[in-house]
Design a protein around this nucleic acid. Structure first.
Lengths: 150, 150
DNA sequence: GGAATATAGTTAGCTATGCTAACTAAATGA
DNA sequence: TCATTTAGTTAGCATAGCTAACTATATTCC
């Protein structure tokens, strides 16, 4: 019965890969966080804003779901964004709901921040060999797939 | 002069890859954060503890550097960990420095938390096709390389 | 129609986590 | 020895996470 042995080995490899991915994600974001501070806007606000800019307008509850955060938390995050003029609250037919949309200023700030972050990464990427760089592109595609399963 | 054009095209691809990796890292950790809450210990404490458990004992300043955080912030994080009995402060020859080390309880809690996180990830991995899964395993090592450049 | 219930957001109050400024204590060195 | 540098802590502020409790609007059911 080599079957069992194979399965257990594969499982151990799976765990090792998962571990590597987890660690890589943590350290990646920790480095990039430094660049985010330049935007003068907190990480939660930045992330919520990015959902509105790249994903389009939506209600507070939907935004809270997207950000994996409770409504009261999102309520305060949005309050900060609105105070800074980066997000606008719109009324809907349903008087309970609000429609949240990014302002032009919000979109601009987000694009600039994203540019900074991504440039740091792209710079690191460019120091790798041509092949490794291509492999990383392939990897990022696989990661998207993985996320859909998570 | 196709050189310029090629470079600009390559650069655009680089940015796209960087963007994908960044987004993947954000969403990966956001999903896994849910599992972390089960440990009853905050994310910053968990992360600092993991440095001590997996990376070994070190001073407060070194830990702050590793976590990309200012000394006062780390001082408080460590205070919380010490209060919970997960970390021990040891005196060194240099009277100013402290040597921080994880306790057995700290190591245990961390391993359990890591297990939960990594299991979620491993489960998602196992739902991919055999080839994709293998490819991801091969490529995850590349991420470590990338991080060293960042 | 009108009362009971359900749903969307907000407010209040707690903890944790980030920062800078200012402090204490120990080591270094001129 | 006495000034300076270095390590860590304390104090005080802002952001961000949570639950509990509240308000206001929709929906349901009699």
């Amino acid at each position: 019965m080599t079957r069992v042995k194979q399965k257990s080995l594969a499982n151990r490899e799976l765990l090792a890969t998962a571990d590597q991915l987890h660690s890589a994600a943590i350290h990646l974001l920790r480095r990039l966080r430094v660049r985010d501070r330049e935007s003068g806007i907190g990480p939660a606000q930045l992330s919520a804003l990015s959902v509105l800019v790249f994903g389009g307008a939506r209600s507070l509850g939907e935004l809270a779901d997207a950000e994996q955060v409770r409504p009261p938390t999102m309520s305060r995050i949005v309050a900060g964004l609105a105070r800074a003029g980066l997000v606008r609250r719109r009324a809907t037919e349903d008087g309970r709901r609000v429609r949240l949309e990014a302002t032009a200023k919000g979109a601009k700030i987000l694009w600039e921040g994203r540019k900074r972050r991504v440039q740091s990464l792209a710079q690191a990427l460019s120091s790798l060999s041509e092949e490794d760089c291509q492999r990383l592109t392939e990897l990022s595609g696989l990661l998207q797939q993985l996320l859909r399963k998570l």
